[in-house]
C-alpha cells in the first residue's frame, strides 16, 4: 500500500485528484517501459518530483489541465498527458515529457491520477476531442493499492499543506526550464548568512512567475 493523498480542488470538487510521492525510486525503467507500452493499468501522470517547485505549482497545472479536458479544449490525447503538457512552458508535448515526465534517471517520483474515464473507443478521429467523464472506480484505496504493488520506492506521506511535494525540488533546473533567471545575480552579493526567510521569499517569487507563465501558455 502506498500513501496516497486525495486533493479536492475548489470549484472542481466532483473530481478529486489522487497524488502520491515516492523517493529513492528503484524500478524506474520498469515503470517507464509500461508507460511506453501504453499499458492501460499505468494510466497515471508520472512526474519528476525534482521539477515540481511547490504544491501550488502542481495543483495549478492540475486545475488548468482538468479545466481544459472538461471544457473539451485539451491539446493532448489523455487527461494525464495534458497535465504533463500543462506544466511545460512551451507547446511541444514531447519536450514536456522529457522535462517534467518520468525520465530514465528519475529517482523521485510524483504520481497523479485523475478520476476520469472515456466511454468512447480509442479510434477517434485525430482532430476530434474525446469526451471524458467521472470515473467512480478511482478511489484513494484503489490507487494506493495499485501504486503500492508496482512502484518500488520509499513512499512519503503528503501532509495537510502538501509542502512535501516541493521538498525535493531542484530549483535551478526549474529556473532553467521556465527561463526565469531573476534572483541569480543577487545571490552572489548576499551572504549565506541571510538564512531561510530570504530563500522562502525567493521561492515564492519564482512560484508566482511560473504560475503566470503556465497560465499564459498557448495564448
Amino acid at each position: 500500500m502506498a500513501l496516497v493523498r486525495t486533493f479536492t480542488l475548489p470549484h472542481y470538487e466532483q473530481y478529486p485528484v489522487q497524488i502520491a510521492l515516492f523517493k529513492n525510486l528503484k524500478n524506474t525503467s520498469y515503470i517507464r517501459s509500461q508507460l511506453l507500452e501504453a499499458n492501460p493499468d499505468f494510466d497515471y501522470a508520472f512526474l519528476d518530483a525534482e521539477m515540481i517547485l511547490s504544491p501550488t505549482h502542481l495543483l495549478t497545472a492540475t486545475f488548468l489541465s482538468l479545466h481544459a479536458i472538461l471544457t473539451a479544449r485539451q491539446k493532448t490525447r489523455t487527461p494525464h498527458s495534458e497535465l504533463v503538457f500543462r506544466l511545460s512552458p512551451n507547446n511541444n508535448i514531447g519536450e514536456s515529457y522529457k522535462k517534467f515526465g518520468l525520465g530514465p534517471h528519475t529517482t523521485n517520483l510524483i504520481a497523479v491520477k485523475y478520476p476520469l474515464t472515456s466511454k468512447q473507443a480509442d479510434s477517434v478521429a485525430p482532430n476530434e476531442h474525446k469526451v471524458w467523464d467521472d470515473d467512480g472506480s478511482v478511489t484513494n484505496q484503489s490507487v494506493s493499492e495499485h501504486l503500492g504493488r508496482v512502484v518500488e520506492g520509499e513512499c512519503v506521506k503528503i501532509g495537510e499543506e502538501g509542502w512535501e511535494l516541493g521538498a525535493v525540488c531542484d530549483v535551478e533546473r526549474v529556473r532553467k526550464a521556465y527561463k526565469v533567471n531573476g534572483g541569480g545575480g543577487k545571490k552572489g552579493k548576499k551572504g549565506a548568512a541571510d538564512g531561510d526567510d530570504d530563500k522562502k521569499d525567493e521561492r515564492k517569487e519564482l512560484e508566482s512567475v511560473i504560475l503566470g507563465i503556465m497560465t499564459l501558455k498557448g495564448s
Binding site: G182, V209, L211, G212, T215
Partner: peptide, 26 residues
C-alpha cells in the same frame, strides 16, 4: 490577455503586482 501578460511581465521584474494564477481567455 493584455492584462495578464502585463502582470506576468511586471512580476518577473520584481514589481509588486498580484500574481496571475489561472485564466481562460475564451
Amino acid at each position: 490577455l493584455a492584462e495578464a501578460r502585463s502582470l506576468v511581465r511586471c512580476r518577473k521584474e520584481g514589481i509588486k503586482v498580484p500574481a496571475v494564477l489561472g485564466a481562460d481567455w475564451d
